[in-house]
Amino acid sequence: MDRKTRILIGKPGLDGHDRGAKYIARALRDAGMEVIYTGIRQTPEAIANAAIQEDVDFVGLSLLSGAHNHLFPEVARLLKEKGGSDIILFGGGVIPEEDIPGLNKAGFKTIFAPGTSAAEVVNFIEQEIQTR
């Protein structure tokens, strides 16, 4: 059996800056993972649907526009509703430190600070896979 780690990288919200998201997506590909990139300005519904259909192990969200406190938990809620509560969530972008505990509580395993290296993200994924 040849199981590949599958990850969805999505951008909810209105900002159109996806350089960071694409950079992470490419790094994960180069680490041997299958990365589904869904593009900018996705609704939480669209992201959750795609994650279920693509049967991913992880969903990573990136957001620069500041609506994370609403959009991130909404994706988590929809994923649970659609039977994807075992999918591991992580986030990144511009997220103030004081918002992180709330997002953790909403189901986000980790929130990467701006300037996180791709290697750190790859590390996180690999560790989570091992402890699964």
């Binding site: 590909r29 180069d30 041997g32 299958e34 990365v35 990139y37 593009g39």
Partner: peptide, 21 residues
Amino acid sequence: SSPFSGGALLGDRIRMQDHAS
């Protein structure tokens, strides 16, 4: 899929957003 890492960047959905939900 990349012949080196075995990974892949799957981006076709970007153009199918009209039907994403």
